[in-house]
């Protein structure tokens, strides 16, 4: 098992690449969702304020 993770001495390089890929993909996905929620909420607040004024 240990040798599988050591990758013949290249473990640090291989695992850091896979780890970084995971982090970037999750971050891109999460940022996209966050912005979508923020834009939606901003429009919702603006429309509610407009409705209250009317």
């Amino acid at each position: 098992m240990d040798s599988g993770f050591a990758m013949g001495g290249y473990g640090a390089y291989v695992w850091s690449c896979y780890g970084l890929t995971f982090v970037i993909v999750v971050l891109l996905s999460w940022r996209g969702r966050l912005r979508q929620k923020r834009v939606y909420r901003d429009i919702e607040v603006r429309l509610k304020a407009l409705e209250d004024r009317e």
């Binding site: 990758m7 013949g8 896979y18 890929t21």
Partner: peptide, 11 residues
């Protein structure tokens, strides 16, 4: 390249 070539799958 030994096991280092496995980086190809993300690179």
């Amino acid at each position: 390249q030994g096991d280092a070539f496995r980086i190809i799958y993300v690179h």
